[in-house]
Design a protein around this nucleic acid. Structure first.
Lengths: 349, 349
DNA sequence: GCTGGAGGAGGTACCGTTTCCAGTTCTCCG
DNA sequence: CGGAGAACTGGAAACGGTACCTCCTCCAGC
């Protein structure tokens, strides 16, 4: 009767009912279920039998309220429909799930105010920790909020002041960009256009730094053009147009993001410029579009799923042993492909 | 002193402290905050002043426990790194957020057992409702579980028995596929290879149905070849190889998914087949790759973000007014592009 | 035989709310 | 002026657990 599956689902048994039916104290039920050592085997058997009979499962809310921990983690992402972000989420979720945590996801649309709103929201939801891909590294209000947040935070590919006490997972954008630039220089390019989302973000700064490192290492004049803007395809379009309209247009373009690449490709196609012939092209983050484009597009790749995993692992470690904040730097790899072609003769001065 | 921001964050005030400081009963504080009508304006002012002073915010866990509602929704997705899924999530999240709900996300990796595990997990977390992109429409255990689940469920692009009482958001795959097939037939194609994830899913069945509808409507012999398998790129590769190896290979291929398209493109490239010249190609879901490929790839498009939004709206409506389960069907649009090219003369018998 | 400690079980305060119930005051009407 | 009812307010019981504290029993050791 009480085994009727429908009833079992509709009327959730609670610990009191289990205790009554087993003829023991509520606290004993709790002890059995939390595997407290001081429990006789007779007691354990009796309680477990009733637990099984009633299909009892502890109420997670009540446990959370009492324990002060919700086993949940908030993840603020710029835009989950961006493949890089969704790979972060993919990696993070698998690690969190394995550790028994649930992942709450919110999009900020790149709006720092939404970042803050989401962080506060998560705080209200009593998350045990947060994974943040912040819209801004500099915004004062966000940083102040994070400083007093009270729960462990891991930032993904962002550089925040040490006072915040956050963990960070970073990509070594500099190394990949250096390799890409070296390749372009080897191919005879001198004027390289670099389109990036923003110099306010670590990724942008490191990429510019990597390119300039490579140029400086050759002791040649720096003829590169850096165009920061936004991470939207529109910026990719505008910047590409701008580059092509220069009196001496660059012979190579590096698109610093998958959306930027889309904008760049749109403009190159519209203006009849052939990738890998009229102009060399390199992008960041290896998506199917880069691999399958014809010609294939050279890429500065990184393991985005691995970054998400690393972030979640860092958070989990801190949640477990209250470890010190740490920073993990993960590699980027330059993948040379046909789009990174020789510079035209007459321009390779 | 008590306005020190650090202290405010670390020591969260509770309703009892507010009541004490304001010199009123706990229940009065609660009434003020929940905007109960029977509250004098003097009381309201006094309580609100203290609330402000202490920076009091009600504990969401305690509220949830008491109210029996968590204002959270679980979303089970096959793989969030798939752009279609992440667009679903994008759309759903924006609607849920606006309604004050949080979204818990889990990946099933297309494993029906993980679907079930996640559904149970969400149940344990006391979600108010669920959004499901199930790995299987047929699995008995999943359906039985859903039937007795006790919370509103919306399935996305899946067909489940009415007894489950779920809402559904469906895509009109049939119409888009019919239009695509008509276009290919107009271009002289007769042997069309259709690569789909599975016939066990509504999407697959409808797509096959749409293609056959279009062929039958012309009263011509059906020479199409349908290759179901999985939704992975590997199936796209294997199926494409299989099609090309036929004694009479198809002159047009329709890839029924973005991962399948990737596999198909890999094989076509490897085997030196030029898209839009040696073979016509159509894909499903309009991603940047399809738009920017050269030649651009014809697509059966749908508003994936809109689907996610619709699913969340359906769920929200049901959560609000306990409405009857409903089904929403959203359109697909065929976008003809250069990859859908004329059939070679000698094959157009 | 008494004491001390361990093993085991029960009782209950507490987590932080909401909400019902009861009680008080005040107003208005007959 | 008495009583009905409205307008407020306070107290306390939930919600469903956890964990501390207490108490009892039994056994070993002196």
């Amino acid at each position: 009767m009480s085994r009727d599956p429908a009833e079992r689902v509709h009327h959730r048994a609670n610990v009191r009912e289990v205790a009554e039916r087993a003829g023991v104290a509520i606290s004993s039920v709790s002890r059995v279920l939390s595997e407290h050592p001081d429990v006789s085997s007779a007691m354990r058997a009796r309680v477990l039998a009733v637990v099984d009979e009633l299909g009892y499962e502890p109420d997670f809310l009540a446990q959370s309220l009492r324990r002060g921990s919700t086993l949940s983690v908030g993840f603020v992402v710029g835009d989950i429909s961006n493949p890089v972000m969704s790979n972060f989420a993919r990696g993070a979720e698998s690690v969190l799930r394995a550790a028994g945590y649930s992942m709450l996801l919110m999009n900020s649309d790149g709006d720092p105010e939404l970042d803050e709103a989401h962080i506060r929201f998560f705080l209200g939801r009593r998350v045990d920790g947060m994974l943040l891909s912040l819209a801004s590294e500099k915004r004062r209000a966000t940083l102040d909020l994070l400083e007093h947040i009270g729960v462990p935070v891991v930032v993904i590919d962002r550089e925040v002041p040490a006072r915040i006490g956050a963990n960070a997972v970073l990509s070594d954008h500099r190394a990949g960009m250096r390799a890409a630039t070296e390749h372009l220089l080897d191919l005879g390019h001198r004027r390289i256009g670099l389109i990036i989302p923003s110099l306010e973000m670590r990724a942008g700064r490191e990429r510019v730094g990597g390119m300039r490192d490579a140029i400086a290492a050759r002791g040649i004049a720096d003829e590169s053009i850096v165009l920061p803007g936004s991470l939207l395809a529109e910026h990719g379009e505008a910047a590409t147009n701008q580059l092509l309209d220069l009196p001496h247009p660059p012979t190579a373009i590096i698109a610093g993001g998958n959306q930027l690449l889309i904008g760049t490709l749109r403009v190159l196609t519209a203006r009849g410029k052939l990738v890998g012939e009229d102009i060399a092209l390199v992008t960041c983050d290896d998506l199917p579009l880069a691999e399958l484009y014809r010609p294939p597009i050279a890429t500065i790749a990184r393991d985005t799923v691995g970054i998400g995993r690393a972030a979640a692992q860092l958070l989990h470690a801190r949640l477990q042993h209250a470890e010190e904040p740490a920073t993990v730097i993960l590699p980027t790899t330059y993948r040379a492909r046909a789009s990174a072609s020789m510079a035209p003769r007459e321009v390779a001065r």
